[in-house]
Each structure stands twice: as C-alpha cells, then as structure tokens.
C-alpha cells in the first residue's frame, strides 16, 4: 500500500547542500509510487525564488530542480503562508505554483502523513 510521505523543506538553498540533497530524495520518492508531497516552510521558501542561478556559486540551480518534481509525479507542493508573510514573499516571487496553507491546514497535512522527513 502506498504511504503518504511529506518532505518538509525549511532550509535556504545555497548556504549548504542540504536543500539540494533533500530535493534529490523527494524526486526519487516520486518515482516510487508513493503519495509524496512537499511543504516549503520558513527559509525553505527561498528554494522557490525565481531567477536563481546556482552556476554563480558552482552548483546546480535549486529552483530548476524543484521544477522537475511534477515530472517525477510529485504534484502536491505546499507552502507556509505565514512564513511567506514574515519573509515578505508572494506567489509572484516564486518559480513554481504552490498551494498556500495556513497553520490549521498545515496541521491537517501533517496529520494525514505516514512519514515526515526533511
């Protein structure tokens, strides 16, 4: 039976390779026929900013990697609305369409999961 797996991404993309390596895992999860979703929260929202150029710091472009998620079957992309407000970001700043969740909706997303990882 398929499991519900949530990747909770809350790290900024270029200060470490943490975000990049977590996205690699989310992409692999997508091809495993599980119910995979991703929640961007806190500094993790910076992973979604448009106009990133990872080549400028010798790496891959995290925003572009996230763009591959739907091709890998990961279409449930959520983002924390209160985080965006705190960081001064809106949907116009982002390179991918996401579903904004308030805290109550994030709680219910968490409560639906079998596995939550980062």
């Amino acid at each position: 039976m398929a499991k519900r797996i949530l990747f909770l991404l809350n790290r900024a993309p270029y200060g470490s390779t943490y975000a990049l390596e977590a996205i690699e895992a989310a992409l692999v999860a997508g091809v495993f026929d599980q119910e995979v979703s991703v929640l961007f929260s806190g500094a993790g929202l910076y992973q979604l900013l448009s106009e990133q150029d990872g080549g400028a710091v010798g790496g891959r472009t995290v925003g572009k990697m996230l763009g591959a998620l739907p091709e890998y079957g990961v279409t449930d992309l959520f983002a924390c609305g209160p985080s965006a407000q705190r960081l001064g970001l809106t949907g116009n700043d982002l390179c991918l369409p996401v579903t904004w969740l308030d805290y109550t909706e994030q709680k219910s997303l968490i409560n639906r999961q079998d596995i939550i990882t980062g």
Partner: peptide, 21 residues
C-alpha cells in the same frame, strides 16, 4: 546505496525517525 533505499526504508518501516544535523 542509492536514494531508492531511503524511500524503501520509509515504505517498509512502521516508524521513520530523522535525526537532523
């Protein structure tokens, strides 16, 4: 191992615990 083994660990276990850096 490949990352597939991470996902397999999730699907084959009752609990999955992440120890963050």
């Amino acid at each position: 191992v490949g990352l597939g083994q991470l996902i397999e660990a999730m699907t084959e276990s009752d609990r999955f615990v992440t120890f963050a850096a």
